[in-house]
Every structure is written in structure tokens, then in C-alpha cells.
């Protein structure tokens, strides 16, 4: 539990603005040909948006309605197509940035953290702008949102305000300065875009991430299923080479030719198999730098 520290956060915001500006300059040099929509598609894949915002078994692309069972009740993902009534058609780009960075709807109400804004708050401003550009290219779908089905008192949205005060630290992602360039890119992909901790880090009773057990897996993840330890501990992926991890993220095959199960199958299909090779290698390199922890417990 880390209450928000305002002073450092302001400093961090200023620093991250600087970093984003630098990153943007580098990016435009590296890929002058890619349009905002194309870059946005890559962000969309890395952030695995489709895995939750499209219903498996034939749901319309990004029309939402996917159920996510949790100990607090069942959440249903919303329609994020540009449909004016049911999707994001009436939103401004600023509304969209606020949703990702601050976890608030255009009317100011807080989102449940089933929407992983606790990770997306780290997304660079450039990535958010590109993602917005990509979403404008999606076919609008007239599918109404379904309300969440939550147990009392979790159904009280106002309770999210103290929850956010306890668990949500808004701010753009800044890599540990000790990390090399590849590992830092991996850290951004793992912690901000890929939001890996949302499943791979256990949660406490109030649904906050237990940061002391970061990435050590959990016996009761989303849909009540086990989630693997991805730290370099022998109970995690300690026995895997960085190449093994990258290949798993690309194909789903483990080093001993087992194949991913459960929600990770969706993550691989919708997200990690579509990343650039160097991004998968960056993720693998970063996971290798994590503190080895036993688990899941």
C-alpha cells in the first residue's frame, strides 16, 4: 500500500515529459514511414486490448461484452469501437488519454481496475495519441454495453475513490536508470503496455497488487485460475533462457514443448505473437532482471 506522494509525482511527470519528447524524437527517426495508425496498431497489440474488448467465440471486433470473473463479481468489458452511441464515438482524444492515464470516464467517474489503468497510466503520450489514431480506423459496432454484475459493496463506484488513493499512482512510466536500453524497453512493455502484473502479481483482499510479490504468480487469478510465476526463480522461468521466453511469447511453445494454457493463450494470440522480434527479446531481457521469488502461493 503506497499512498500517493504528490511532490515526487510532479517531478516525475516533468521528467517523463522530457523523456517522452526524447523518445518521440528517436522514434520518428527510426521509423519515418510508419503512420500514426500503423504505430497505433502496434501499441494496440502490445497492450493486448483485443483480448478483453472482443468477446471470444465470435464477438464483433472491440465491441466488448467479454466477461471477467473476479472475487468481487463479474466485469463486462465495454465497446471501444468509434460508434457514437455505444462506443467511443463521442469522445475527444483528451477523454481517451484521461481514461488510460487517470482511470476516469469522460463524466469524471472512476473505472474499476478490471480496466488496467493502473498499468496504462505509464503509457507514453505518443503511444496514447497513436492508439487513439488507430481506434478511429475500427469499424463502429452498435452493441450496447452490459453493466457489471458485482456483489455489494463493490457495486458502489464511490468506494473506488479511497481505493485509488491507496493503490493507484498515476504517472508516465520511467525505467530504472540502472537498466540498459533493451531492458528499459522491456520494462515499459511489461509494466505499462503489456500490463503483465495485472495477472502475474497476486492481489490482496481489496484487489490491490501485492508489490512485494511482483510477478510471482497467483493461485487465484482472473476467472479463478492459476497464473504462472514469471520471475527468474526455479519455480518461475529461472530455467528458461531469454530465447526460450521470446519464443514462448511468439508461439506459445515452452522449452519442453508444452503449450500455454488459459488466458495466456489469448495474450499470445492477440498480443505477444504480433510484437516485433526485438520487443519480445526486450521483454525476455527485462524479466531476467526481476528479483527471483518463489511461487505462486
Amino acid at each position: 500500500m503506497s499512498p500517493r506522494a504528490v511532490g515526487p509525482a510532479v517531478g516525475a511527470a516533468l521528467l517523463s515529459l522530457l523523456l517522452v519528447a526524447t523518445a518521440q524524437a528517436q522514434e520518428s527517426e527510426a521509423e519515418p514511414s510508419a503512420s500514426a495508425e500503423e504505430r497505433g496498431r502496434a501499441v494496440f497489440d502490445a497492450a493486448s486490448c483485443a483480448a478483453c474488448h472482443t468477446r471470444p467465440e465470435g464477438g464483433a471486433f472491440l465491441a466488448g461484452g467479454r466477461a471477467l470473473a473476479s472475487p468481487f463479481g463479474t466485469f463486462y468489458s465495454p465497446n471501444i469501437t468509434p460508434h457514437p452511441e455505444h462506443g467511443l464515438g463521442g469522445w475527444s482524444e483528451a477523454d481517451f488519454a484521461r481514461a488510460l492515464h487517470e482511470g476516469r470516464a469522460p463524466d469524471g467517474s472512476a473505472y474499476y481496475p478490471a480496466f488496467p489503468y493502473t498499468s496504462y497510466t505509464g503509457m507514453s503520450d505518443a503511444d496514447v495519441a497513436d492508439l487513439w489514431a488507430f481506434l478511429q480506423t475500427v469499424e463502429p459496432v452498435a452493441e450496447a454495453n452490459r453493466g457489471h454484475d458485482l456483489a455489494f459493496p463493490y457495486s458502489l463506484r464511490l468506494l473506488l475513490e479511497p481505493w485509488r488513493w491507496l493503490y493507484f499512482e498515476p504517472g508516465r512510466f520511467q525505467p530504472d536508470p540502472a537498466l540498459g536500453e533493451t531492458e528499459a524497453r522491456g520494462a515499459y512493455l511489461v509494466r505499462a503496455l503489456g500490463h503483465c502484473a495485472e495477472c502475474h502479481t497476486p492481489r490482496d483482499r481489496l484487489g490491490g497488487l501485492d508489490r512485494d510479490r511482483d510477478f510471482a504468480g497467483t493461485a487465484s487469478g482472473p476467472d479463478g485460475r492459476r497464473v504462472a510465476n514469471i520471475t527468474p526463480h526455479e519455480e518461475g522461468v529461472g530455467g528458461w533462457t531469454a530465447g526460450d521466453i521470446a519464443y514462448y511469447l511468439e508461439t506459445g511453445f515452452t522449452p519442453d514443448f508444452d503449450f500455454a494454457g488459459g488466458a495466456m493463450t489469448d495474450v499470445i494470440e492477440h498480443s505477444t505473437s504480433k510484437l516485433a522480434d526485438e520487443d519480445r527479446r526486450a521483454i525476455a531481457a527485462y524479466l531476467k532482471t526481476l528479483a527471483p521469488l518463489p511461487g505462486p502461493q
Partner: peptide, 11 residues
């Protein structure tokens, strides 16, 4: 592999 493991296999 994935189509089946997604639904029927615990990780």
C-alpha cells in the same frame, strides 16, 4: 494446441 488449451487446460 492453443484453441484447446485456452478453454480446457489450466496453466
Amino acid at each position: 494446441c492453443g484453441a484447446c488449451h485456452r478453454v480446457y487446460r489450466e496453466d
